[in-house]
Design a protein around this nucleic acid. Structure first.
Lengths: 147, 147
DNA sequence: CTACATGCAAATCCTTTGCATCCAC
DNA sequence: GTGGATGCAAAGGATTTGCATGTAG
């Protein structure tokens, strides 16, 4: 089990949360993958380890992790919803509207925006994991030539 | 009918799109409102004008407008999905995770982010209408005192 | 006239809920 | 032992699809 998973489990135990096999495995799968998982991916990843969680339980565990701030949920568009551990190194996604490829974006690009939200709106942002839409480099030139 | 609606209709006609009563009314309702409408709101707004569109048609028209780039779809969290005309004056939403209030945010706060996406990732963003989550001023102080 | 949009009904998909059983603490 | 989590089945809600009918161009 990864360092990150151990860390999360310790934090949960400390908060008095109940740690079942199912919860441990979900957390482990999310940490192991590192990236973002859809419900089906998660279900598959667990099945591959011999654990056949039913969907209601998966939803309940993810809701629980979201409420406690350990997991983020992101809508990548086109009914693609993914879940991801909120680790120390955040990143966000640039989703191409044309080829649907996904580019990882450094979290620091949002620092300026966060500052301005605080200063100009008194709003304390919790931008854990966002998806921004647009055109990737390749599709820009492709679509250009067709115009 | 508003100026904006006329403008959109003219653009669609020019593109050879077929303009039915239903399509005109949906566009008019979206322009009239100015803000963002959920499916139900839209359904209600149309009903109030004596037009009883069924849901499949509403979905189809919205999909059509989204594909053509006239309408944006935003997930405000908690299963609240809203639609809005993409006009010249864009704005975005700051959604409070605690009280669920919604603050309008000026589009210009994103200019710096757009620049950096272009420069650092070669990505051409289409940030039409976003929802950012966090805590509003009121809820920040409320939650502070309870800690 | 003809291609395409709509209306209706039904299907589909994702997610939630109720309740009995099970298990972590 | 007990409160809370899980498993199962079923309900719920939003969105999509198939096909006959209607209508814009």
């Amino acid at each position: 089990m990864s360092n990150e998973a151990e860390h999360v489990l310790a934090a949960l135990r400390e908060q008095g949360e109940r740690l079942t096999i199912q919860r441990r495995e979900v957390i482990d799968a999310l940490c192991r993958d590192g990236g973002h998982l859809a419900i089906d991916d998660l279900h598959g990843a667990l099945e591959a380890r011999g654990l056949d969680l039913n969907e209601p339980t998966i939803y309940r565990i993810l809701q629980w992790l979201k409420d406690l701030g350990f997991v983020s949920q992101t809508d990548l568009g086109g009914n693609r919803i993914v879940y991801q551990m909120i680790g120390p190194l955040r990143h966000h996604h640039l989703v191409c509207l044309n080829c649907h490829c996904i580019i990882e974006m450094d979290d620091r690009l949002l620092d300026d925006l966060r500052d301005r939200m605080r200063r100009e709106y008194g709003f304390e942002p919790r931008i854990d994991h966002m998806a921004f839409f647009g055109l990737c480099r390749r599709c820009q030139s492709e679509l250009e030539t067709h115009t």
